[in-house]
Amino acid sequence: MKKTILNLRVVSKEYPGSNYVLLKLTTIDDSPLPIMQPGQFAELKVENSPNTFLRRPISINFVDLEKNQVWFLIQMIGDGTRKLGDLIEGDLLNVILPLGNKFTTDLKPGSKVLLVGGGVGTAPMLYLGAVLKQNSINVSFLLGARDKEALLQLDIFAKYGDLYTTTEDGSHGEKGYVVDHSILNKEEFDFIYTCGPKPMMMAISKYADQKNIECEVSLENKMACGFGVCLCCVENTKEGHKCVCSEGPVFNLKKLLWQN
């Protein structure tokens, strides 16, 4: 998949939750966007931020083929991401994409899959769910957050599958963590995908391992380049150090050295 550097134009900006911004972007000349797959990410250039030296890796939240738009859901946690949140409609954003490998989406039609996301880790689950649904796969989302304000894009998620939620304060869905949700005991799944905080992914991985369910996790180790040359973002796997940016971010659970 050819990687490209291009300037995209901000078409719209939304605030799906406090401290989160959703940027929808398109090409400046209406040429079609490069083909992007669920699980891939982009490196976003941050301008006018002296403390931000490197690009920011941001996962692809959604690709709207009809409108030729790519969406980035950004949690504003530092100077760089806050500066990205300052972009307004019409601004240009320099991006490198698509980067990384992808989630497995060519499952048998009718397969039953669970997509588990926590915090801003829910971002790649939207596009993944949309593509899986298109492939006639039975999608369920299990999304967790601290409180209901931090559960993002629920109305859009609901378009592509059954929706289950947990919040730590009980303000939406079941109270607690995703791994405690009752759906995990009620339903049987053929495949689990997960992205979010590491403790959450490890807990879900343990569940998948015990039930002997195929599981793919998306990692977000700290990286400098995003395309496999700096070797900073390595995850220690059964096959040695692997770059999360180029050999991931999606890894089959069986390849990881996580204690299950």
Partner: peptide, 13 residues
């Protein structure tokens, strides 16, 4: 890992 830290106008590896 971790092998990288961003610093103002630079990075450590």
């Amino acid at each position: 890992y971790p092998r990288m830290a961003e610093v103002p106008m630079g990075m450590l590896n």
